[in-house]
Amino acid sequence: MNILIQIAYLAASILFIIGIKMLGRTSTARKGNFLSSLGMFIAIFATVIQVEAITLVDILICVIIGSALGLFIAFKVQMTKVPEMVALFNGFGGLASLTVALADFWLNTQEKGLQVDQITGISVAISILIGGVTFTGSLIAYLKLNGKVSGKAITFTGQHLINLLLLIAAVGVSVFALTDFSNPTFMIALAILSLVIGVLVVIPIGGADMPVVISLLNSYSGMAACATGFVLNNNVLIVAGALVGASGIILTQIMCKAMNRSLINVLLGGFGQTSGSG
């Protein structure tokens, strides 16, 4: 592994830490965001220079499409609709982690016919599970704030039991996936299950509690990126993912406190609809 690339990843990690720290103070927040974006640029640049010359064109096309869409959304959106856009971006990040883990798994087990080790297999499963929950969970949060799905808490009897059973099923298919890597059916089943779980865990939560949920899902997307780092054996993914995962949980707690709510209360759902917003 090229030492310069590793040093670039280290520099990016440091810039992320400083960036998050500075984002917490009004006077330094904007500079903090800039430093963190500089870190991201360095990490991307260090990665791009290692790829095959021919794939550079594909990468450039994807980056141009993604940048155009991202900038369009970021500049078009009204400032009152920021939380729902954060939810949408966050959902894309979660889906990206799921897709990267699945792509790497598919490449090794289906296209190269390699046997992957258990640690990598478990990391793939965790990426898929957390990434999938983040994607559909964020999408529901976006739709709720948008009014396209009722901001009221949607509850039905046996909800928590169904969620629990789905989670057990997700663990079950993961175990099956780990016993036979040549058969991708179980990993795909896990992806579908995780997408369903994401919908079901957010749908019972009222619109007024959505900012807290988005903050928690933001933390999840960090954890998904972190798990993807274990799949790819990549330090910067692990550091950045862990930073977002951990700081996201603290921020979620702070936001809960500011709203006089407990996190457990929010997650169990069915309470937030009385506040009317959303």
Partner: peptide, 13 residues
């Protein structure tokens, strides 16, 4: 801002 950082998965992509 931290959500943008979790987009680090771009490196994996």
């Amino acid at each position: 801002g931290s959500n943008a950082i979790s987009g680090i998965t771009i490196v994996g992509a």
